[in-house]
Design a protein around this nucleic acid. Structure first.
Length: 614
RNA sequence: GCGCCCGUAGCUCAGCUGGAUAGAGCGACGGCCUCCGGAGCCGUAGGUCAGGGGUUCGAAUCCCUUCGGGCGCACCA
């Protein structure tokens, strides 16, 4: 947990406590600490305290040992009405809050705010665009897209919960040589089939055409190598590359592909028609996947619509001398003259655009059309260097908003056997994985509740399976590479999405039983340590959400939720709720209701559905 | 060759501008249903935080270095 400061603390109950304590501590510090500089930490469990004030920083000003300072501060704060105990423990001043006052304020806040508890207006002036998923249209979505989608959705929701306006977009890579490949494959080997006639999803069908293309090209290459008398595997890397270039130059299939691309660029109506048809197949497939996953977009950008832009921007910059001409005529952004990055080509020698050409164009379109204060790019870590170059290039062009571009970088997803390679077929397909999740969740349900009707199984299983996958991706830090083993990565027990869902469902069941038999007490009593510990953790929720949003890191929220649910598990085990005696009963029901609210709000932010019954 | 990231328990990972006895989950072993849902709860074993230096009152965290891994490096997308 991050240190609590005036700036980081969110939520009325915690803010009230904090500002009171910060004032008291500042007053007792002989002017050495300003209220704005007071930093408290959550006290470790073994101390039996709630919050702690570390006295190391004061030691410099007071020229005393931290332990002595803690002693002195303890006497100064001894009579504070918000503290039930205040004791020095070595260099720390440990603070125990009065449970009555704090507990009352906190439960009142949560019960009154309900779904809004955890949200704030800290980012109310922000207009943020988040670009995520951004698929190619020549193959179906895979595991990597799933991590991207799940992370992007959670970040979008977190930022929106802080009052920002969030636009979710993607850039659909729907043109270029890879698209021409699937098109050529369809012309040559498609024999008039359609996804409907074959009964497959459109994106899968186009993906299979792309695979066919690569297979045929490989055959041609083998024949060519044999004819040339080349033992390819015996070559060193550099020679391999040269050989590849020679083959690509002489390949009939490659030549046909390039010609198809040229006709597409020239606007050849027959080619365009085929392209539109195949695109529609793919988009229908993507939509089905997004729908099942629960992902949506406010706006799609298509590479085919923006790839021609950007050239004027580049020409202008060239005229002004911002960009340079390479000896062979390519246009270069001279990044090395302004920083540590290497120069980047922004236009080919033949005048055609590169990926960065359209990225420059798209970035300007986004800021111009939406008046953004920030533009986020949810893209894997392998693009770190490229994103730095893109940002630096835009800064070089004089766009002030370039500093408001954020690369929301995340770690790679590997399989146990290594990197996914679609050309070699070892990819985990998104649709197949979701199907597998459904199956596993259904089996788990049947095993646990043999009498559950099939309709109920069918209704609950998808939510449980997706929760497992989503939480698996979100609970680790976003920069951490993930090795995804389909056999072991999906679990329903322990630190998992279904564990959180289960805890929620169990609470929902309790509250149904107690419905109508209680009302929130004016003055709840949270005297039991576990009651109080739970309340204290609930109080931190809005702060955790704000921190996760500001650091673009849902794992902070995910970890928090696990700890919270673990605390609840212990509390639930040790204390009766529904059949407890009053007045404890009402207090505990209010506490449990608050817990339910926090779990529901937290999972919602992560993109995980809760279940009233599981 | 250069740049960025990483190396923490058998496995998968937390550890948030340096701070209290380095924490979870899985796996292993042992407990817990006359009681609100056992996808649960409790306990035991398991770590010279890759190795070596340094800075500091204090280092898993910062600096240097060695080793080991990943990603990337101007006309691919």
């Amino acid at each position: 947990m991050k240190a609590l400061t005036q700036d980081s603390v969110v939520g009325t109950a915690l803010q009230t406590v904090f500002s009171h304590l910060a004032k008291s501590l500042a007053n007792a510090s002989r002017g050495a600490v300003d209220v704005a500089d007071v930093a408290l930490s959550v006290a470790p469990a073994h101390t039996g305290s709630d919050l702690a004030f570390p006295c190391f920083k004061l030691a410099r000003d007071w020229k005393m040992k931290p332990a002595q300072i803690a002693e002195e501060m303890a006497t100064a704060l001894a009579d504070d009405p918000l503290l039930s105990a205040c004791e020095a423990a070595g260099p720390y001043l440990n603070l125990r809050l009065t449970r009555e006052a704090v507990g009352r304020d906190l439960l009142a806040e949560i019960l009154q705010q309900g779904d809004a508890f955890g949200s704030s207006q800290r980012q109310r002036d922000e207009v943020v665009m988040l670009e995520y998923v951004s698929p190619n249209t020549n193959k179906p979505l895979h595991l990597g897209h799933l991590r991207n989608a799940v992370l992007g959705r959670a970040v979008a929701r977190l930022i929106a919960s802080q009052g920002a306006k969030v636009w979710k977009t993607d850039i659909v890579n729907d043109r270029g040589i890879h698209i021409a490949k699937s098109m050529l494959a369809y012309q040559r080997w498609g024999s008039g089939e359609t996804p409907e006639s074959l009964g497959v999803k459109g994106d899968h069908y186009v993906g299979s055409l792309y695979v066919r293309y690569e297979q045929e090209l490989k055959k041609e290459k083998q024949a060519w190598l044999q004819a040339e008398g080349i033992d390819y595997e015996a070559l060193d890397e550099a020679t391999k590359k040269k050989t590849d270039d020679r083959f690509n130059g002489s390949s009939e299939q490659m030549a046909a592909t390039r010609e198809l691309l040229q006709r597409w660029e020239a606007g050849d109506e027959a080619v365009r028609q085929l392209w539109r048809t195949m695109n529609q197949w793919v988009f229908a497939g993507f939509d089905a996947t997004y729908c099942r996953l629960g992902i949506d977009f406010d706006k799609h950008y298509y590479e085919s619509e923006i790839y021609l832009g950007g050239k004027e921007i580049i020409q202008n910059a060239l005229d002004k001398g911002i960009f340079k001409l390479a000896p062979n005529g390519a246009v270069i952004a001279p990044l090395s003259e302004h920083g540590k990055l290497q120069d980047k080509a922004v236009l080919r020698a033949d005048g055609t655009g590169l990926y960065i050409t359209q990225d420059i164009n798209l970035a300007t379109i986004k800021f111009a059309e939406y008046g953004l204060t920030r533009s986020l790019y949810c893209i894997a870590t392998e693009q770190n260097y490229y994103m730095q170059q893109l940002t630096a290039t835009l800064a070089l062009l004089g766009y002030e908003w370039a500093s408001n571009m954020v690369h929301l970088s995340y770690g790679m997803v590997y399989l146990p056997e290594g990197r996914m390679k679609s050309r070699e077929g070892n990819v985990v397909d998104a649709d197949m994985l979701m199907e597998e999740l459904d199956t596993l969740a259904s089996e788990a349900l049947r095993q646990r509740y043999p009498d559950l009707p099939d309709t109920e199984v069918a209704q609950r299983a998808p939510a449980i399976g997706l929760a497992a996958m989503t939480f698996h991706f979100l609970v680790v830090g976003k920069d951490t590479d993930i090795i995804f083993d389909p056999k072991t990565s999906i679990a329903f027990e322990g630190k998992t999405g279904p564990y959180l869902q289960y805890s929620y469902a169990r609470v929902a069941s309790m509250l149904r039983k107690a419905a109508g038999t209680w009302q929130a007490p004016e003055q709840p009593s949270l005297e039991e340590d576990l009651e109080w510990q739970l309340a204290l953790q609930l109080m931190l929720f809005p702060t955790v959400v704000a921190d996760a949003a500001e650091s673009y890191d849902p794992s902070r929220l995910a970890s928090y939720l696990v700890e919270l649910v673990q605390t609840f598990g212990t509390f639930y085990h040790d204390h009766r709720v529904v059949d407890a005696e009053e007045p404890a009963r009402s207090s505990r029901l209010a506490l449990v209701t608050s817990f339910q609210t926090v779990v529901r709000n937290g999972l919602e932010l992560l993109g995980i559905d809760v279940l009233e019954e599981m």
